[in-house]
Amino acid sequence: MSVVNQPQRSGERAPDDSGRATAEFEPRITAFVCNWCTYTGADLAGTSRLHMASNVRIIRLPCTGRIDHVFIVKAFERGADGVIVSGCHPADCHYTAGNYHARRRFGVFRELLSFLGVDPERLTFSWVSASEGGKWADVVNETIERVRRLGPFDSYHGLAGAATPADDPFARFEMPAGATGGTAAAPADGHDAASQAPSGTGDAS
């Protein structure tokens, strides 16, 4: 299903990582935000002309409850160095409880993220209300700074192209025949390898 869809673009902008690990490294951040609080808060940051770094791309969803955590894995797989998830404050959810479900899922998901070899520091989970334009700017800037320190996220990057088995960190796991290199969980016996999988030593170097 769509989880393993390849990008629809024709490849005219194939991932190019040359020079990304230099001093001028600019992290790429994908943000999943809810329509009612954080998106509106980001709008307010705009109307208040609060300047911030331009490294964040926002994907608008109705509610953080809508966020399937595969979205986040997918974002990392497609080249994001960091991900922000932000919604309404507890008890302020436009849909009553979507943010609580999201919060619970992400409590569990953080663990899974390290299992997948992604430093959980690359993921920011925050509450930004419609009146907190300033907080949104802070979340953006802080996340960028943190991810900048962590350096580029490359270990999964090869997955998108899956060019050669040598480039594919999953190639270390024996995938069953017929399984595609998606983001589905690694086989159980791959646990050791996964927990050792260092970030930043993958394909690109």
């Binding site: 769509s2 990008p7 673009r9 991932p15 994908t30 791309r57 994907i59 997918k74 497609r78």
Partner: peptide
């Protein structure tokens, strides 16, 4: 089982957005 879709915010739409951000 991925049997529910939300019109206007389907998985296809969201993944298309995520994919579009690849290697910007």
């Amino acid at each position: 089982s991925k049997s529910v879709e939300l019109a206007g915010f389907t998985d296809d739409q969201v993944y298309a957005e995520i994919n579009a951000l690849a290697g910007w």
